[in-house]
Design a protein around this nucleic acid. Structure first.
Lengths: 208, 208
DNA sequence: GCACTTCCGCATCGATCGCTGCAAAAGTCT
DNA sequence: AGACTTTTGCAGCGATCGATGCGGAAGTGC
């Protein structure tokens, strides 16, 4: 009767008492909680309550608060923020910028989700105890800028952008708009207004 | 011998034991500390240590932590962020935008000062206990957007901008760039690169 | 059945959070 | 001098912070 194989797969069931909660669902809730309240503003009690998990279970499953945030950020990158990767695959620089800004507006102003961007409002200025997370997010943002720059560099090489275009400067400009949109969304500015602004900003391309 | 009038002014010295510290200097240090660490990241112990003042003196002089932040924000508005008011007084819309973005770059990347903008990184996403301050800063940012919009509306009325220009959308665009610059500065991006980007963005005016 | 491994619930840890009571100190008033 | 007003230094308040120890529960292996 021993359920050695509960499914058709050849995998053995893991030893010990099985988890009573879904780690993916708990991590999703943790990500949303960090997104809404920021790293410092998200207390352990609030996090575990939102995750529906005891503190002990959280620690055994994810490590500690900082580890939990790292995993939440990874989930955010591959989930709500996946529009960045998709945007970089667009065929033209103009389409890349359009997809990036439209994706930013949509993700930062989605109803029934926290407004703004976890990578921006997760830990922009912090106390000394959260300095590691602050630096982690700064690196996360800079990574996005770098990927954008390399994509624009490719566009210059391909003749999609004028040879006089500085891809670093253009990437900095578009990412600055994206970060600014994230701040505006955190302030509660509506999706339509931000999308109109993004459309207007993209009407002239390349902007310089 | 009683120093009833310590100065030539006719003002009487205030009753009770005089303060042993300069409230303006202490408030300046508090503003810098909030600027660097954010509202939630700035602990009372850290604040009072930076101010060179005991907790008791801080409470009698400023109220509580939230009141202290309000006064620090006022000081920030009239100090480091005064470039906004000056920019609005420029004679043309283009000069307004140029002065605003240049002032933002200069203030958010000044050496020997916290990088970024207190109004952005002071409390972008917070726990429930800091929700009041978060909303206060959102209103502070929106006030800046509104003043910019009204200035651009005036420019449209004066014929300085085309009659087809939507001043609200243009104000949203310029303020979005400014907030984005603040985020980039908080990440440690250098002044020169941000200034170059601002110059490039302002090269074509109006942008739409 | 029994040893073994892992997870859960409860209680609680030391540290820090924002904040305050109290008495002495340092002034001005009459 | 003596009453009055305000500030200062010290100690400590209750609450919450992130993080753990421990015993029982719930599975596995043999």
């Amino acid at each position: 009767m021993g359920g050695v194989e509960t499914e058709q797969t050849g995998q053995r069931a893991p030893l010990g008492r099985p988890r009573a909660f879904d780690t993916e669902a708990a991590l999703e809730r943790a990500m949303l909680f960090f997104w809404e309240h920021g790293y410092e503003g998200a207390s352990l009690s609030g996090l575990t309550k939102a995750m529906g998990v005891s503190t002990t279970s959280m620690y055994t499953a994810f490590g500690n608060k900082e580890d939990l945030f790292r995993k939440a950020l990874e989930r955010y990158t591959e989930g709500p923020s996946a529009y960045l990767t998709r945007a970089l695959e667009e065929p033209s620089a103009r389409a890349v910028a359009t997809a990036l800004l439209t994706g930013t507006v949509r993700t930062t102003t989605r109803p029934a989700q926290p407004h703004g961007c976890l990578g921006v409002q997760g830990a922009l200025a912090t106390g000394t105890s959260a300095a590691t997370v602050r630096d982690l997010l700064a690196a996360w943002r800079e990574d996005g800028c770098n990927r954008l720059r390399e994509r624009f560099r490719q566009a210059v090489d391909e003749g999609d952008l004028p040879a006089t275009t500085d891809p670093g400067l253009l990437g900095r400009y578009v990412s600055t708009l994206a970060f600014g949109i994230a701040v505006q969304a955190a302030s509660g500015i509506g999706r339509d207004e931000l999308q109109q602004m993004a459309d207007a900003a993209l009407a002239a391309w390349p902007p310089f």
